[in-house]
Amino acid sequence: MFLINCPFCGERDQSEFSSGGEAHIVRPKQPTELSDDEWAEYLFMRKNIKGIQFERWNHVHGCRKWFNVVRDTSNDKILSVYKMGEKPPVNYK
């Protein structure tokens, strides 16, 4: 349990948000040309990182907007919050 700083509403309880999982998984540009392996990679395979993870959240019980978060999954500390479409901060790898 932690607080998330929504870029639109400010700091709110995590229970107001819904997790959208790993961020920056690019939707295939030409789905018809994807092989089964590539589909599996896109649909199911996840980094599932212990450490610094880039992820999406939706302020579902608030402004209902999506945004990105950088969070350390080993201690739930949020390191950065940035809007959809913005480049991920480069100082976290």
Partner: peptide, 14 residues
């Protein structure tokens, strides 16, 4: 379960 990936062995109060 919580809805987010975490390795903290705690879980949320809600």
């Amino acid at each position: 379960t919580d809805s987010y990936v975490s390795y903290t062995q705690r879980g949320s109060h809600n």
